[in-house]
């Protein structure tokens, strides 16, 4: 009996202790960030912000959908002040669920072009990534490439790889097509593209590049970001792949290359709104934007900051001319027609 009593009392104290210490960790001068981005670069910037302003940054990292769910459930009691997500479509979803608030900041208006901002100033883009064609120069000549739509040509049969349709980057790509070309054309596009796949979608973006290198396919549709990461990988063989393959920005003469952004929005029930705004402002500053560009191979949104040399070596490009809110508007429609047209 003694044993079990001891056991139980140790348990209870432990529960209470862990409960109390963690429950009271909220100080005054803090900002709590729910972030989908889990990069060392981001942590570096948060630390820098802490040093410059004395505001402590708390971070919770999980996938976009999990964070949105969490915010929704916590309601007005949430401790989150800022939501950072690497997909404009998901931010739009958060806005539709009434989880964000409009803010006004001259600094942000100066630093961030208007098409990378929400129309009601509920979220602000921080970095950009382009979804491009990556090809093997021995098997594809650059003259053969032009648009995403040209990939439907029968000469590309069994020569294209791309990751799963359930991936958010692909979903947003298709959402942008619906916004620009309408549903019917987009359906034709998906259907034709799937016919030219060289295998059922599998793996992540880097795996698509490796598949092209291995000769499974000749063209991969993937993000510039991962090409940057591979070129600077700790694995020398990945660097080799990145150096051999070439990047092509499609639709330069027509509708522009698809881009997506990482963006931040102040939560509706934020208790540290001022701090949260300061943090976004900091992240959009020239200093922070250069860090994003150089350490994480993303395109800066701040027009006064140059992309990294590697990214510049791929050349300039014209992006799709749509407000990125559209990616959210057409997101679920995109998901449904991708299933119906058989993009696994």
């Amino acid at each position: 009996m003694k044993k079990i009593l001891l056991f139980l009392s140790v348990f209870t104290t432990m529960v209470i202790l862990t409960g109390c210490t963690l429950g009271t960790s909220e100080g005054d001068n803090t900002v709590t960030v729910y972030s989908e981005r889990h990069y060392d670069t981001d942590q570096l910037l948060f630390d820098q912000f802490e040093q410059e302003t004395g505001i402590k940054v708390n971070v919770v990292k999980a996938s976009a959908d999990e964070l949105i769910n969490k915010l929704e459930t916590e309601g007005e009691d949430t401790s989150a002040d800022l939501l950072i997500i690497s997909d404009a479509g998901r931010l739009h979803l958060a806005k539709e669920k009434d989880l964000l608030q409009s803010i006004s900041s001259e600094t942000l208006e100066d630093n961030i072009p208007s098409n990378y901002q929400d129309a009601d100033n509920q979220w602000f883009g921080l970095t950009k990534r382009a979804r491009v064609l990556v090809y093997h120069p021995d098997r594809v000549s650059v003259d053969e490439l032009s648009t995403y739509e040209s990939l439907l040509d029968s000469k590309w049969a069994n020569r294209i790889v791309v990751r799963s349709g359930s991936n958010i980057y692909n979903q947003s790509l298709i959402a942008s097509f619906i916004a620009i070309n309408g549903e019917e054309e987009t359906r034709t596009f998906i259907n034709g593209l799937v016919n030219n796949f060289s295998r059922d979608p599998e793996g992540n973006d880097r795996d698509q590049a490796k598949a092209v290198m291995a000769g499974i396919a000749d063209i991969a549709i993937m993000n510039t970001y991962y090409m940057g990461k591979m070129a600077n990988s700790s694995d020398p063989y990945e660097v080799e792949v990145a150096n051999k393959l070439k990047v092509f920005f499609p639709n330069q003469e027509t509708t522009g290359t698809h881009i997506n952004i990482s963006a931040a929005g102040v939560t509706k029930h934020s208790e540290n709104k001022e701090n949260a705004i300061k943090l976004i402002e900091f992240l959009s500053s020239i200093e922070a934007q250069s860090t994003f560009a150089n350490a994480n191979y993303e395109y800066p949104v701040n027009p006064n900051v140059e992309p990294a040399d590697l990214l510049k070596s791929w050349g300039d490009f014209i992006a799709q001319d749509i407000n990125l809110t559209q990616l959210g508007v057409y997101s679920s429609q995109a998901a449904i027609i991708m299933d119906e047209e058989g993009w696994k």
Binding site: V15, T18, G19, L22, G23, E26, E74, D77
Partner: peptide
């Protein structure tokens, strides 16, 4: 006290 005491503690995860 904040409202979400247990929710922000490790009790929930446990």
């Amino acid at each position: 006290s904040k409202k979400l005491v247990l929710t922000t503690s490790l009790a929930m995860l446990t």
